[in-house]
């Protein structure tokens, strides 16, 4: 039976000698690897910088292009907002960081202004509509278009504030939550039923669609009405008390 390094004192000494002999070699290899990597990285950064400079206007103006750029960065593990300076590597190159932060501030404004009305939950499409309207009023032309991906990305930059801004998927839609409470599963179920019924929901619909007991349905609806402000009550409907969810509606005001 052959034992690696051999047995006894002699074997141990041989092992130590061998590993000492390998040391310089291994550090030489890793040094050359690091050098190579650094060279690659600087080449890559140069290329990316050149790319970002060349396409600066496209990145700022064209949401499609911006998304592709974002994807490319993500694929190679670069966060364009990260970096040693505030606003990231790209801030001074293309103003990308500023652009995202400005958008984030606009999103916060929209959420705060509508929070009493919708309980801090708003559909992403609605946020996008209001952002576009605000920007149109500000005299920005259509080439400065904002996409849904931009909204999601800006919301992500808000997460550091710990204010609970988060994109959640409810049923078939993406919604932006701006209050720290998590949506519980019953609330999500109520929102989903409301989405499918033109924004309205009542006890009977939940019993029928979700197989809930009337008590569970009543409790969920009452919490959403009184505790969370996520729905409004309507006592003038034919079928009795109905609840309406403002956050699943699109409000086409000018």
């Amino acid at each position: 039976m052959h034992r690696l390094g051999g047995a006894g004192i002699g074997g141990l000494q041989r092992q130590t000698q061998a590993s000492q002999a390998y040391k310089p070699l291994s550090s030489a290899i890793s040094r050359s690897q690091v050098d190579g990597l650094q060279q690659q990285l600087s080449t890559f950064r140069e290329a990316l910088t050149r790319f970002a400079k060349e396409h600066r206007n496209d990145i700022r103006r064209d949401p499609e292009f911006r998304q592709q750029f974002q994807r490319m960065c993500a694929a190679i593990g670069v966060d364009p907002l990260a970096g040693p300076r505030k606003g990231g590597w790209w801030a001074e190159l293309i103003g990308y960081g500023d652009w995202t932060y400005e958008l984030a501030i606009q999103i916060v404004e929209i959420c705060v202004n509508t929070r009493d009305m919708n309980g801090g939950l708003i559909e992403l499409g609605e946020v996008l509509r209001v952002v576009r309207r605000l920007r149109a009023l500000g005299g920005e032309n259509e080439s400065e278009a904002v996409s849904e991906e931009d909204i999601v990305r800006s919301v992500h930059t808000l997460s550091v504030l710990g204010a609970g801004y988060q994109v959640v998927t409810v049923g078939s839609r993406k919604m932006l939550r701006s209050v720290p409470q998590e949506l519980d599963t019953d609330q999500a179920a109520v929102l989903e039923v409301a989405q499918e019924a033109g924004g309205q929901v009542n006890e009977g619909a939940l019993v029928l669609r979700k197989k809930w007991t009337p008590e569970r349905a009543r409790t969920a609806l009452d919490n959403m009405l009184m505790r969370d402000g996520l729905c409004w009550i309507d006592d003038q409907a034919e079928e009795g008390i109905v609840y309406w969810v403002p956050s699943v509606m699109l409000w086409a005001d000018e």
Binding site: Q195, G198, G199, Q200, L225, M226, G229, W232, I233, D234, D235, Q236, A237, V242, Y243, W244, P246, V248, M249, L250, W251, A252, D253, E254
Partner: peptide, 29 residues
Amino acid sequence: LELAPYQAPSGFLLPSIHSWSAFYTYQPN
């Protein structure tokens, strides 16, 4: 799901919330 402003016969433009049923019931919250 879309609520739009509505132009009343008088010419007044009613806001979209006027087309939302719950607007007419007192909100206890």
